[in-house]
Simulated assay, not measured.
Amino acid sequence: MRLKDKIAIVTGGGSGFGAGIARKFVAEGAQVLIADRDLQAGLDVAASLGPRARAMRVDVSNPADVTIMMEAAEAHFGGLHILVNNAGVGHTPQPLETLPEDEFDRIVAVNMKAIYLACREVVPRFKEQKERTGEGGVILNMASTAGVSPRPRLTWYNASKGWVITATRSMAVELASFGIRVVALNPVAGETPMLKTFMGEDTPEMRAKFLSTIPIGRFSTPEDLGNAACFLCSDEASMITGVAMEVDGGRCI
């Protein structure tokens, strides 16, 4: 019960890594608001987790939705201690100059601006909470090995995840004195709905090509990310901030 009595928001919690994080958080005692643009997916995950989980439809790139999300967590659970900015989008492998502008804008909106919008809402809440109770909060951003060791033909996705890593480190330095820790996870390609996007096509040959770059020899799983997220967001990691932990089976070595 490492997260007993903690209240968390997990964006993109209706599938993939987000669902794995939500499951682990509830198993460790937290109450979780699952925010996903696919409401049914979020409801399905929440139903499987019982009364400590709740789902709502949220477009993380929409400022009004983000405000409502924060208010909903406070209204339903009575507070907020952990924000997991997990929602993200990718693009199919292609030469950097061929990505349509609307796809680029979507990557910026979901992978980057959404973190700005969420932090704009949550940081004042965590600062006030620190003054009132002595406890600030934790912000966990989902980055990627793409931001550390980029694959070719995924340039704009890679760049967005590099931004997440830098933003995490900068926020950590700025917010440390307010009792707010900011951390990130760098997963390698995983068994999630985004895998096909990154590979371009899901074939045995393409999977073998990706797996050949991962020394441990398998893709990351939602459970892997849930375990890492639970540690970083727990009091066991109270001295850790500003890190971008690689959950990558050795790919970035």
Rank of each mutant, 00 (worst) to 15 (best):
S170P: 06
T241Q: 02
E236I: 01
F231R: 00
P152A: 10
K4C: 07
G226S: 02
A237G: 14
G78H: 01
T203Y: 08
Q31A: 09
M239W: 15
C233V: 08
E205M: 01
I240T: 10
A146W: 11
E71Q: 13
N186Y: 04
G200T: 09
P152Y: 08
I139Y: 11
V32F: 04
S15R: 14
V60T: 13
N141R: 06
G249S: 08
I82Q: 03
M1G: 12
F178N: 05
A72V: 02
A159K: 11
R151E: 11
A35L: 10
G29R: 04
T11P: 09
L96A: 09
P152V: 14
S144L: 13
K127P: 02
Q40F: 00
D38I: 03
G200P: 07
Q129R: 06
N227S: 06
E71H: 12
V10E: 10
P215H: 07
H76A: 06
A146T: 12
T92D: 15
V173S: 10
G20E: 05
M1N: 12
A159D: 04
A46C: 01
L99N: 12
G226T: 03
G162P: 11
A244E: 03
A53V: 00
S220L: 11
N86S: 04
F231G: 01
S149M: 09
M112N: 01
D44A: 10
A19R: 07
P215R: 15
V182D: 11
P100W: 02
M206G: 03
H81V: 02
V164Q: 08
L43T: 00
Q31M: 09
V58K: 00
V182S: 07
V243Q: 08
T155S: 09
H81E: 10
F210M: 14
R153E: 14
M112W: 02
R54S: 07
V89A: 15
F77G: 06
A46V: 00
E236R: 04
T133I: 14
T67R: 12
M199H: 01
K6Y: 07
M171K: 09
S212K: 12
V108A: 06
V110L: 08
N86I: 05
K6D: 01
P204M: 00
G147M: 14
P150F: 11
A19Y: 04
R2M: 10
V45H: 05
N85K: 13
V89S: 05
R169A: 14
F210W: 14
L211Q: 09
L96Y: 02
I68K: 00
V84G: 07
T221L: 11
G134R: 13
P150V: 12
A229S: 15
